[in-house]
Design a protein around this nucleic acid. Structure first.
Length: 228
DNA sequence: AAGGCTTCCAACCGCCAGACT
DNA sequence: GAGTCTGGCGGTTGGAAGCCT
């Protein structure tokens, strides 16, 4: 049967938003709200845009109190910790960072944080390959120094633990030889080092907690974003 | 100075779940 | 209960800007 498109793509403008379009959308929503129907909204205000596009533009850019760029060290740590706990649930992570959007965080992770962490990790791997105790000790110290600034995040106990790591988004696989996949698992290892609370199935059952303990703590911390 | 390369971010795409009819 | 519609989400892409050689 197929699904009806959300808008008539032939009559819909794509690409960057003009200041006029922004102004129209912003003015309308500030005055009337979204009306609970994003699809109808562009027609009401005479914009040749898809409703979804309007929604995205509002949420990611026009909404009041949006912060752009300039992620702090503290925010880095929060993102890393949450990524460890819940994976790429950007909307949930964004909820913990007032003024940040899921899109922003996703971009920031993909373009900078991931590389930053992988860079660190590669250094460590090289040191290991050299099989030098001295080298290892130096790297360890380096990592210790960097992780020492990683704070506990919003109810998430990120102390190193002896618990079996739980990686919700990725099934366990034997470490592959392909470098990109290796990166993925390497990244995981590094993130574990940086701290983060993990749980495995048994652990959950034993404690009768939600699939991820993070959920409950988050709900509690909504109004008190970060306690460091 | 200029051309190629890399980085970054805004925006789009497609899927899914829940609401509605 | 089945079909349809909409909102929401995560993944991906295109192009502008900055950097490098």
């Amino acid at each position: 049967m197929g699904r009806a498109p959300c808008c008539d793509k032939a009559n819909v403008k794509k690409g960057p938003w003009s200041p006029e379009e922004d102004a129209k959308l912003k003015a309308y929503i500030e005055q009337h709200g979204t009306g609970g129907n994003w699809i109808a909204l562009p027609h009401k205000i005479g914009l040749k845009r898809c409703g979804k596009s309007c929604r995205l533009r509002w949420l990611n850019y026009l909404r009041p109190n949006i912060k752009h760029g300039g992620f702090s060290e503290e925010e880095d740590n929060i993102i890393c910790s949450l990524y460890i706990s819940i994976g790429s649930r950007w909307s949930i992570i964004a909820a913990q960072l007032p003024g940040r959007t899921d899109n922003d965080i996703k971009n920031y992770w993909n373009t900078r944080l991931k590389k930053k962490l992988l860079g660190k990790q590669r250094k460590e791997q090289q040191a290991r390959r050299g099989n030098s105790c001295l080298k290892q000790e130096m790297i360890k110290r380096e990592i210790d120094q960097t992780t020492s600034v990683v704070p506990a995040v919003a109810g998430i106990d990120i102390m190193m633990s002896n618990q079996t790591p739980y990686w919700p988004e990725l099934p366990f696989v034997t470490p592959p030889l392909v470098s990109s996949q290796q990166d993925q698992s390497s990244l995981k290892d590094l993130l574990i080092k940086l701290g983060g609370r993990f749980c495995d199935g048994d652990h959950i059952n034993n404690q009768s907690q939600p699939a991820c303990p993070f959920d409950a703590s988050l709900a509690q911390s909504q109004d008190d974003p970060v306690t460091l």
